[in-house]
Design a protein around this nucleic acid. Structure first.
Lengths: 143, 143
DNA sequence: GCTTATCGTTGTAGTGCTATAACTGTTACA
DNA sequence: TGTAACAGTTATAGCACTACAACGATAAGC
């Protein structure tokens, strides 16, 4: 096979591979809904919880990480605070800022969401262990 | 390695693999937006166009494939028809039904959307050809 | 032929998110 | 010290999508 033909076939492979990945992950459209149902809140709230599970954030940081705007962040945090999943506290270093921190209940909810979102589809998990090891090795190269 | 340990490690692999897939595909959140911008319409319209690119559908079928309800399908098709991307015609076999068919312009728009959505991320396409061939072979087993 | 069901349409209401402006309290800087 | 900038909140309006009820036209079944 010529170099060009090899390159072409590699790009076709990439396209097929990406199509399968899309199918596997977009079955996750359904998962967003499952998370929303499991936690009794819209998915964007769950997303905020999962972000905060990595550590407390100022409102401003949360806004930027959620790719939203300040007023909506206020709304989301109001809601999460009302449910007892987060607390707001003043940042001692800058009294303009408020720091949002997960409560224990919030941490549990975030973990539940993460569990639902990160569990691989049965189809994928059912591949032979050698195949999974190969996928793991190859995709591990990406960062 | 014992059978149990092997099984455990396989499931851990699956989880890591799925996490990478999620990251690659959900970079596609951005792609939905890019499609919407490129076509100047909301993503759900583009989804309808892509469905119709496989062949004409009755309103009822479109509703079911888009997982939406009848009134919204009417709205979407009204919009697409107004843009000259689809035409409605009476189904000769059942005069209650209307068949929605892509126009040439609609076909082009659908192709543009598909191009944006199915192009593999550069990161993935840049893997060595052997790796892409392996991924292709393994993921090809899934259906 | 009459009833029942289906297809598409219209209308209305509600949800979740986005966008913008205005305001308060706090900080930074000239 | 006075001015500008920033963090967060409130209020308002709009968009995309969902959900439900009702209607006319057509088809199917008894």
């Amino acid at each position: 096979m010529s170099g060009q033909a090899q390159e072409k076939s590699a790009q076709e492979s990439a396209q097929r591979v990406y199509a399968v990945m899309r199918r596997l992950v977009l079955e996750a459209d359904d998962r967003k809904q499952r998370v929303a149902e499991a936690l009794g809140m819209s998915f964007s709230r769950a997303k905020a919880l999962r972000l905060l599970a990595e550590g407390p954030l100022r409102m401003r940081e949360l806004t930027s990480r959620l790719m939203t705007d300040k007023p909506y962040t206020t709304l989301v945090v109001d809601d999460l605070e009302g449910r007892g999943f987060v607390v707001r506290s003043l940042d001692p270093d800058d009294r303009r800022c408020k720091v949002v921190t997960l409560t224990e209940a919030g941490r549990e909810a975030a973990a539940r969401a993460t569990g639902i979102l990160t569990t691989p589809p049965a189809e994928l998990a059912a591949l032979p262990p050698e195949d999974l090891a190969d996928l793991d090795r190859i995709l591990g190269k990406l960062h």
